[in-house]
């Protein structure tokens, strides 16, 4: 797995799915580029305009709480977000992110140490996050779930499992 390296966009606790990808778009906006343009719209309208592919979203506890809508994970993935680092994740968001192939890292101490705007580095294989304040370790994904993530998400994983090529 490649090293993830990007600029930090830092937010607070309880960033919910309605501000990540508003409910009013959930049945009408399906094009990946258009979804990316709405990422984090109701939390930080500048995010989608100014972020660069590879940038990293850092947030407090309970990231992605609320709806089951997986577009909240796919919108960040399509925008090119390198990873989301949070103190904790809501369970549905965690599942959806894995299924979308979006790296989600639970590292509460690192979140406190990371400063907005700094460039950080994440090594998924070693379970290490490096920022100005130092190096922080995080637990790897359970084996049963790692396979889905490594395949690039649940759909490619399922195709592989069913022996469907391409």
């Amino acid at each position: 797995m490649e090293l993830i390296r990007g600029k930090v966009w830092k937010y607070g606790d309880d960033v919910n799915t309605d501000v990540i990808f508003p409910g009013k778009y959930t049945y009408t906006v399906t094009d990946p580029e258009e979804m990316a343009a709405h990422a984090l719209e109701d939390l930080d309208p500048d995010f989608a305009k100014n972020m660069k592919p590879g940038d990293i979203v850092v947030a407090g506890k309970n990231f992605g709480c609320g709806s089951s809508r997986e577009q909240a994970a796919f919108a960040l993935k399509y925008a090119g977000v390198g990873a989301v680092v949070a103190k904790s994740f809501a369970r549905l968001y965690f599942r959806n992110a894995i299924n979308a192939g979006l790296p989600v890292i639970q590292a509460p101490e690192a979140v406190d140490a990371i400063e907005p705007g700094e460039v950080i580095e994440i090594d998924l294989e070693k379970g290490e996050l490096r920022c100005k304040a130092g190096t922080f370790r995080f637990p790897p994904l359970p084996d049963a779930v790692l396979g889905i993530f490594q395949a690039g998400g649940l759909i490619p994983y399922t195709r592989k499992r069913l022996g469907i090529e391409g």
């Binding site: 089951s68 809508r69 997986e70 994970a73 549905l92 599942r95 959806n96 299924n99 979308a100 359970p142 049963a144 779930v145 998400g153 649940l154 759909i155 399922t158 499992r161 069913l162």
Partner: peptide, 20 residues
């Protein structure tokens, strides 16, 4: 319990879902 859209698509295809 709630699941994601992709997970529902996989249930349509395979009947299966992983749960912790």
């Amino acid at each position: 319990t709630g699941i994601g859209r992709s997970e529902m698509a996989v249930i349509m295809a395979t009947g299966r879902i992983w749960l912790r």
